[in-house]
Write a protein that binds this DNA or RNA. Structure first.
Lengths: 357, 357
DNA sequence: TTGTAAGCGTTATCAT
DNA sequence: ATGATAACGCTTACAA
């Protein structure tokens, strides 16, 4: 690798001059600048940013800790991170914890993986990253970030409860509210819910969104219309019957997988989705588009959360104040209107197989 | 950040001694070692690897250039890369080119994106990566890698035609052969193929695998039984009729999307997949598992390719010779036997709606 | 306008 | 067994 010293020697100037030219400090004659630039070009010289970093103490790099790259949310989040970082000319050091691969679905119950996280952080810090973005594999409370981090840190797709460590999360409540408002706008009043696991943050927020939409639509909230699933297709299938018995005209499933199960069951029961009954999902997983009929769903703002996370951390690096007082940034979902929601006409009753109360 | 100098001062030894202790050079009394180690612990000192890198000229980091993180193949490939790199204690610098986002599906027709790639490479090189892994978004000939790369380079999920730049690719031929052999083992002889685009490398290799399987099964290769699609669901749907007219007992779709289209059409036609007729896919996309019935398919060895890519490049760094003579490493697919392939009994004829020749 | 030299945090050589 | 010191490639006062 050619160094600044060699360029200087060839040009018969000092390294300081070369350095000044590279970094656009003034005070260099046009003649020498041209000569030096030409040689730099010819020699294909690129400054060694390790040396530069050592001297100037800014690495223009940020560390990204991914709980598990292969979980569906991560690639888009990281994509968003990289987009903004590229604009601001920051490099990314990636640490993939592979938590799902290592512990399957259980790692987040205790904090036993804390030491793995700490190791990742140390590594990144030793490489002089200026900030760290921790990307959770699913949204929950992240409490493995050490006290007194040496560099600004933000958590994407997870909460921290610590104002000094901003979190970037999905605005589940608003997303669900918007989705259910849409259902209501199509004439639905009796809207069943297949919720996720009861202790999930997503479940709680989305339920609140549902309740808000009902309220603003002047519809009584009937707790009997919400049942809890396990986020998987089977539980969507299983819970559909309960809601059908209650004679709902629309079913809001809190994720697309469960909506898939609802599709399956509804199909067996002889319903035509998008005609006899409405189904809506959440997340906008790849399959949503390929269901028959294509599933209307509320897409997670994965890319936008990553983008926002970069914005927040880079603003932190540049010492500007944050705008979210409590350090929580809610990012809006994206609505995908497809074909699974029919207009509901109160006059026309739909197929009714209710067991009658 | 605490430095080695401060540790030295506190311990009243020289920095050289501290350095020797950290790096396990001998010649230090147990007494001082213990004392220094204790202080290092207490002060939570981590060596600055930028400085270390500058001095020793090995960064233990490799650059990963991803054509587009959000394309389905990439996360698993990168996961494989990170797994091996973690074992070997190499760090990853990630550059996400975002080619699909920037150019949609056309960028790979010309090499106009070459300058974007070069910029990424320069950046990585300036950060002193010891090697570069280029990860293509879909398998094809990659000819944007500059001549005379300053560090070892390998391409994952793409060909280079340059022995000095090894490529890691899917063994499509073997995968297809294995899949079709399986079909044959289930009694199928008249096996239709919905191929991908005719000019695709995947199509050509998978077709060869099909032919090899037929040959070893002593079955005549009938070119009329292969039709070409566009890799999308619609073309699977459309081409199904052609094959059905030919009275095939099994359909091998060269990807899962087209298999989905075949499912749709077969369903309309009144066939029971996995009973009246067999369907097999390729790729093992997420949806394959959720089709009804679950689709038997040949999974792409994404993770394994990434893992192998790291192995190859790290071996290159350590100057060991490669084992693939021409620099191409074929990685085996993984078979997923599910429920879409029935045993075919020659005695029993299946539903026949052929238009009769 | 250009050059000299110190220093960033390490490791490595050579003394002591 | 330990320490002084040069060097890695760069930036930056400051001097010329």
């Amino acid at each position: 690798m050619v160094t600044i010293k060699e360029i200087a020697k060839i040009c018969e100037v000092s390294v300081a001059t070369v350095s000044n030219i590279i970094n656009d400090k003034g005070g260099v004659s046009d003649e020498t600048r041209a000569r030096v630039l030409k040689v730099i070009q010819e020699m294909n010289y690129t400054p060694n940013s390790v040396a530069k970093n050592l001297k100037t103490k800014n690495s223009r790099s940020i560390g990204v800790i991914a709980e598990d790259m292969t979980v569906f949310a991560l690639p888009d989040i990281i994509d968003g991170i990289t987009e903004y970082c590229e604009k601001e000319d920051y490099q990314i050091l990636l640490v993939n914890l592979r938590l799902y691969k290592k512990f399957e679905d259980t790692y987040y119950r205790d904090d036993s993986y804390g030491t793995i996280v700490h190791r990742g952080i140390r590594k990144l810090l030793s490489m002089q990253v200026e900030g760290i973005i921790y990307v959770a594999a699913h949204e929950r409370l992240i409490n493995v970030i050490p006290e007194r981090m040496a560099v600004p840190t933000v958590v994407a797709y997870g909460f921290t409860n610590r104002p000094e460590i901003p979190s970037i999360v999905v605005d589940d409540t608003k997303g669900a509210e918007q989705l259910v408002r849409y259902l209501i706008s199509q004439g639905h009043k009796k809207i069943g819910v297949i919720a996720g696991k009861k202790d999930s943050l997503h479940t709680q927020s989305r339920l609140e969104g549902y309740q808000r939409a009902l309220f603003s639509g002047n519809i009584l909230y009937d707790p009997n219309l919400v049942v809890y699933g396990e986020w998987d297709r089977a539980s969507g299938y299983r819970n559909t019957d309960i809601l059908i018995e209650k004679n709902v005209s629309a079913i809001f499933c809190m994720n697309d997988f469960m909506a898939g199960g609802t599709y399956d069951r509804l199909y067996e029961l002889g319903y035509q989705i998008g005609k006899d009954i409405a189904v809506a999902g959440f997340d906008n997983r790849e399959m949503a588009e390929f269901e028959k009929p294509p599933l209307t769903t509320m897409g997670l703002p994965l890319h936008d959360m990553g983008y926002r996370a970069s914005e927040v951390i880079i603003r932190l690096l540049e010492k500007e104040k944050m705008d979210a007082e409590d350090g929580i940034y809610y990012v809006d979902c994206n609505f995908f209107e497809r074909e699974s929601v029919n207009k509901f006409d109160t006059q026309t009753s739909h197929i009714d197989i209710s067991y009658a109360p």
